[in-house]
Each structure stands twice: as structure tokens, then as C-alpha cells.
Design a protein around this nucleic acid. Structure first.
Lengths: 192, 192
DNA sequence: CCTGGGTGTCAACAGTTGTTGGCCAACGCT
DNA sequence: AGCGTTGGCCAACAACTGTTGACACCCAGG
């Protein structure tokens, strides 16, 4: 009399939370903030829209929870200075290819103020410190980091958001071969 | 009994059309596609929302009419080959600084399929031919043009859309000095 | 047993959206 | 004059949005 339930999920709490976050990331990534409706996200997660509100308070709260991201950038101290460009480019490529959070963040950041500010925070607290540790003059770090961000975000935009065919067609190694010298120059070349 | 109307604008037709287009461009540029409502655009243009429908059929029609853009790129034949990078970067900077259509297009393209396809068209029909005329091997033109687009759109994204503070702070000449060699390399350097 | 908090659903709210049709006034024509 | 065409406003529609509250279920603790 022990096994009367052949397949009954006994309880869940965090399971639903995680399902909601997954569905939210997917929707935000493919539709942007406005068109990613709570109803659509809830349907993807197979629960009622009101659960989203209960767990995350509001749509903004859900977005904030869904796009918390850690770039896991390498330690600048352990980064060979003349290969920083190549390492950064390959790291970003891997990041973008396997993580849809970044796509969501870029799509939302382009039209939504909160999304843009989230990107500002990631730039300031994650990319900027690395650049500060690599580039020669710390005072130039913000400008150099902005140039690097521009090149890398531009790649992501054309390749993963706009999906410009020739940008998508580029092989991974081609992208690295072309972009690594650029990023390296923005990081360490003397200011022009 | 002849002058009972001290100041009556006698007629308008194209005037209103133009006012709608102006307001639409501004709204699309600052709010993106979804949040740029027809009502808000109509209020900016000081007319009734239904007029927008009458003149442009639908919101999509309005968008299509509002973001028709000609980049006025220089003739590649008259372009000194070793200065193409500098010329392109300065041209794009001027374009972005005085024309809000491009901001609208990028904001919308990031979340809207029609907007993205419009950008594909501009790339294919305006940027690509110039690159084809400048770069050595015509077969490499699409890839090189995609790299150029990535760098230039990345700059526009960080500077004019996300408004990343260090990217905004860069002086125009600094941007040119940093980016011109990059674009020049993408255009004419031997493939790595 | 009953009680209670966590999990989930249903129905409804108030507001906004794109879009439509009817009506009014002014003008150019014959 | 009478006429049609044109520019414009108003009110309304149906659909959809984020959000809320009331109600059903389930399993543990007393």
C-alpha cells in the first residue's frame, strides 16, 4: 500500500518559479519587453498569469529577476596583456551563443529605459573593471571600455538580434580573427 | 461683412501628412514601435488619430512611410581607397547626429521583425554596393560589409540608443580617430 | 479529526490599443 | 445657386493589457 501514485509530482514551489523565469527569458529575448506579455509567459510555463504576479510582484519585477546576469569575465591579472583582445572576443561569442539572457537584455535595452540602465550597470561593474586592469592609463579606461563595448555589442546586434545574413554566415573563427585585433587595439594601443 | 475670420489657415493637405510623419519619427525614435501609439503621434501632430489611419492605412503603413531613408553614401568610385574608413565613419556620425530616423530604425529593428527587415534592405542596397566598390575581392564584400555595419551600428547603439555615458562623452574627433582605422581594415586589409 | 498555510485556478476589473464609421464645415467647380 | 470632394473631429468598437480578489485543492502539524 505504498505505491498508489505511479507518477504524481508531489510538491513544487521553486520549480514553478524557475519555469516562469525560463519562459520569461525566452519571451523577452524573442519579443522584447512590450510584446512579451505576462499571459504568454504564463502559458509557456503552463501556469496561470496570476502566479507570475504572486511570485514576482509585477512585470517589471519579473524582468529584473529574469535578466540578472554575470558575464564571468576573466580575471585581468591572469590575462596575458597582448592576448586580451582575443580572449574577450571568444568569451563574448560563447556567452552570446549559449545564453539567451543577453539577447533579451539587448532587445529590451533598445526600447526600455530600465533595460538600458541594466546594461549600464553591467558595463560599469563587470566590463569596466577588467578594462581598467588591462589598459595602460586608468584614466582612459572608460573610453576604451566604451569602444570595446561598442564593437562587441555591434557584433551581437548584427549577428544575434538583427540576424543580418552575412553576419550570421561568418564562422566563429573568422569573427575572432577579424575582431580580436580591433579589441586589442582599443584596449592597449596608444591613444591616437 | 467680409473679414469675420482674423486668422484662418485656408487649406492644408500635405502639411498634415508631413506633421504626422515628423511626429511619428520622433515617437518611434524615442519610444520604439509598440510604445509609440497612434494616439500619442496624433496628439503631437495636433490632429485626430483617425487622420493617421486615413492617410497611412495602418500603423505598419505609417512606420513604413516614416522610416524611408537614404543614407546618401559617397560614390565608391570617387572615394580614395585608403581613406574610405575615415570618410565612412565621419559620414555616419553626421548622419546619426542630425537624423532621428536612424535612431527610430535601430530601436524598432531590435524588437520588430518589419524593422529588422528594413535594416536588412538598407544594408543590402546602400552599404553593400559601396563596400563592393572599395574592397579588393568582390566575393568578400558581404562579410566585410557586415563587419563594418557591426562596428558602426555598435557605435550608434552605445552612443545614441543606450546612451552609455563614456560613449556619449567621446568627442567626435576621438570617435573618428579610433574607428576609422578599424573600418579601413575591415574594408581593405587582406583577410586574416 | 481539523486547521492552516502554500499552490493553483477562475473570473473580473479598469485602462489602453488599433481601427472604423458617421457626421460637420469649407472649399472648387459648373 | 447646388454639387461633390476634401480635411477634420467625435464616439464607439473589439481586443488585449497588467493586475486583483475570491475560491478550490492539498498536504503537514496539532
Amino acid at each position: 500500500m505504498a505505491d498508489t501514485k505511479p507518477s504524481a509530482p508531489p510538491r513544487r514551489s521553486g520549480t514553478t518559479r524557475a519555469a516562469i523565469l525560463d519562459a520569461a527569458r525566452e519571451r523577452f529575448a524573442s519579443d522584447g519587453y512590450e510584446r512579451a506579455t505576462i499571459r504568454a509567459i504564463a502559458k509557456d510555463a503552463r501556469i496561470d498569469p496570476s502566479m507570475v504576479m504572486r511570485y514576482y510582484g509585477s512585470k517589471e519585477g519579473l524582468f529584473a529577476a529574469a535578466v540578472a546576469v554575470d558575464l564571468r569575465l576573466p580575471d585581468p591579472a591572469a590575462l596575458p596583456r597582448h592576448e586580451a583582445g582575443r580572449v574577450l572576443v571568444t568569451h563574448f561569442l560563447t556567452l552570446w551563443e549559449r545564453n539567451e539572457v543577453l539577447t533579451a537584455l539587448l532587445r529590451v535595452g533598445a526600447t526600455n529605459q530600465a533595460g538600458a540602465e541594466r546594461l549600464h550597470g553591467i558595463f560599469r561593474e563587470q566590463l569596466l573593471p577588467v578594462v581598467r586592469g588591462v589598459c595602460p592609463d586608468p584614466e582612459q579606461a572608460p573610453a576604451r571600455a566604451a569602444l570595446v563595448a561598442g564593437q562587441l555589442l555591434g557584433l551581437a546586434l548584427t549577428r544575434y538580434v538583427l540576424r543580418l545574413p552575412p553576419a550570421v554566415a561568418l564562422a566563429r573563427e573568422e569573427v575572432v580573427a577579424w575582431l580580436a585585433p580591433t579589441v586589442q587595439r582599443y584596449l592597449t594601443a596608444p591613444a591616437p
